[in-house]
Amino acid sequence: MLDTSHTVEIPEGIELSLPVASPLERILAYMIDAVVQLVILIIIGNVFSLFGNFGAGIFAVLYFLLNWFYAVFFEMFNDGATPGKKAMGILVVNDDGTPVSWAASIVRNLLRFADAFPGFHLFGVTCMFLNSNFKRLGDLAAGTIVIHRKKEVQEVVIKEVKAEAPDVSLLSDEQSAILHFGERIDTLSKDRCNELTDILAPMLKADSSEKRMNKVLAIANWLRGRR
C-alpha cells in the first residue's frame, strides 16, 4: 500500500507515522534560506566594510560561519527548522522521530557540499528525487529525515442532532470515518451524502435516505460524546 509516511515503531510497540516532506517543498525552503542568507550577508558586509581590512577579516569569519553553520544553528535552536523550512511547514528529525541531534545536524549540513556537486546541486536533487523517503546524501549519512510539521487540528463543528448509539460495535477506523462524515458533510453534495450513508443501510435500520443520513449524524454526535 503506497503512502506518504515513514513509519517508526517506538519501544512501547506503538507505530508513529511521520508525514514525509516532498522534494519540491525542500527546494523551495532551500531557496528561501538562500535569500535569507544573502540578506544577512549584505547587511554584515556593509557594516564590516566600515572597519577596513580588519573588518574584512571578521567578515570572512562570519561568512564562513554563516555558510557552514547557518542551518545547524537553526536546526538545533529552532525546533529542527531553518527559516525557509519553517515557512514551508517542514522540519528535520532523526530517522527514529526524535529531535535532530547535534552530530546528525552537523553531518547533514557539512554534506551539503557533496550534495552541491558538481556545481548546482545535481547530486542532492537526483538523490532526493530517487530516494523513497526523499533524502539527499546528507540525510542518508546523518540518518535524518525531513517531515511535515503536524498542524494544530482545529475542532470542526458537527451539526448537532440527538445522539444515538450505533447498533453494531465499531472499530476505531470506522468510528473516525463516521466522525469525518459528520465533519465534512457540508463539503459534499446531498446526493453524495445519501450515496455514502446508503452503503451502511443494514446497520442503520431506517427506511429512507434522509433518515439514514440523520442516523449517521446522530452516531457521529454520540461518538463526539454528546450523549
Binding site: V168, L170, L171, D173, E174, S176, A177, H180, F181, R184, T187, L188, R192, E195, L196, T197, I199, L200, P202, M203
Partner: peptide, 23 residues
C-alpha cells in the same frame, strides 16, 4: 478524495462487509 469523500466511502464499505459477514 476530498470532494467525493473516497476515504469515507472505503471505510463504510469495509464496515458494511463486516456487518454482512457477521450476519
Amino acid at each position: 478524495t476530498i470532494l467525493e469523500a473516497w476515504d469515507i466511502e472505503l471505510t463504510f464499505k469495509q464496515l458494511r462487509q463486516r456487518i454482512d459477514e457477521k450476519e
